[in-house]
Every structure is written in structure tokens, then in C-alpha cells.
Computed example of a mutant assay.
Amino acid sequence: MSSGFLYPFLDARERDPGPLLADLAASAVAKSIESARLRRTTAEACAADVERAAAETARRFAAGGRLFTFGNGGSSTDAATLAALFARPPAGARPLPAWSLTADQAILTALGNDVGFDLVFARQLIARGAAGDVAVAMSTSGSSRDLTAALAEARRLGMYTIGFAGHDGGSFATGSDLDVCLVVRSQSVHRIQEAQALLGHRLWSAVHRLREGER
């Protein structure tokens, strides 16, 4: 089966690699420029919401709260990275209690098998979350049912809820279970996740700054 529709460069028939290499270089430069532009405009558009989310997250940490992150696919990796940044920060920063709900494959597969995948995060929050904690859902669509179910449960428990979404924000933006929704306005999954990584770091940095200010 031809893969040309996915990777057109692989089906190139030119014997001279020059044009192909030039096309690859031009594509890489264009994507880099697009990514930088989107990250800049997203950071500017979301700056006030990031600060608002950071202020409440810092307040909850100070009161003994914890942070739980979750997502699907590539977003699960981003969620784990964000939790690790809080829990195991660079040298000189204070560790804060944060966990990724995607980290334990035994729990994920057990819940997926026994109660259904839509509840793999909601059920973990029932067991581990409490009023005063923070829930962070990461998604490119903003509409995954397991994430919206978890956010509804987080809201019921009295947790502070933060959502990262792409496109137009999906169900995250139109629902009532998020305190803050950070939307990356793009149709590219790759560019969305790159911009979300920046927003996650901005959130951590702001929380860290506020916590150090308290000291």
C-alpha cells in the first residue's frame, strides 16, 4: 500500500537529492516559523488566564492542596510532563504535590476494562481527589468524553479545574465545569501541543513565583 498520501517525500523519483533536501529544509523552516508565531500569540492571548489560574493554584498549594493532570495520547505525555515539572522541578525550585493520572498502566487498564474508558480519570479523582485540589485536563480537541467526565467529577468534588484545548476549545470552552480554559487557536495537532507545552511551563513558572513570594 502506497504511503505517498502521508509522506509525499518518500515517493519522490528524482535522482538528484538537491531539490528534495531543499523542500525538506523549507518545510522545516516554515513549520518552525508557524510554531513560534502561534506560541507567541497564544501566550499573549492567554496571559491573563494563566495568571488567574496560577494565583488560585498557588493558593490551593499553600492550603495543602494537590494537583492532578490527565489527557489522552500525546496529551497524556504532556500531562505527565506538567505534573513532573511541579513535583520534580529544576534545581532551586520547590517541589509541589502533583501527579499524572495516566502514570499507572495497571489502574488505567483495570478501570478501562471494568468500568469503561470514559471513566478512567473520573474514578481516579473519586478515589484520590478532594476539595482544595486542582485538576488539569490536556486535550487538542477539548471534547474527549473521559476528560469531560473527569472535569465534571472534579467540579462535584470542589476541585479547581484548568483545561488546555485546541481548535475552538470544543466542549471545554462551551461547558460549565472549567474555571479556566486555555485555548490554542490552531487546526494542527502538532502546533497545538507545542503551544500547550509553553502554556504549561508559564503556569508552573507563575505558581512557583507566587509561592516563592509567599516565603
Results as ranks from 00 to 15, higher is better:
Y160Q: 01
P90E: 13
D118C: 05
F164S: 00
G142C: 07
R191F: 06
L10R: 11
L151F: 14
M1I: 14
A130H: 11
F5G: 07
D118H: 10
A150N: 01
G200Y: 00
D177Y: 08
Q193R: 07
E56S: 04
D23M: 12
C181W: 02
L67G: 07
D177K: 08
E214I: 14
L101S: 02
E212M: 10
G158E: 10
S75D: 04
A48C: 02
I33L: 15
D179A: 10
A55C: 12
T81Y: 15
R39A: 15
L24P: 00
A195E: 02
E34A: 12
F5L: 14
E51V: 06
A91I: 06
D23W: 12
A53I: 09
S35V: 13
E14H: 09
F86L: 04
G112Y: 02
A197V: 12
S2D: 11
F5W: 12
P95G: 00
Q124A: 04
T81R: 15
G71Q: 02
K31F: 04
S186H: 10
H201F: 06
L20R: 08
P17I: 02
H201N: 03
D118A: 15
V207Y: 00
M138C: 05
Y160G: 00
F61R: 05
C46K: 09
F5R: 15
T161Y: 10
V184T: 13
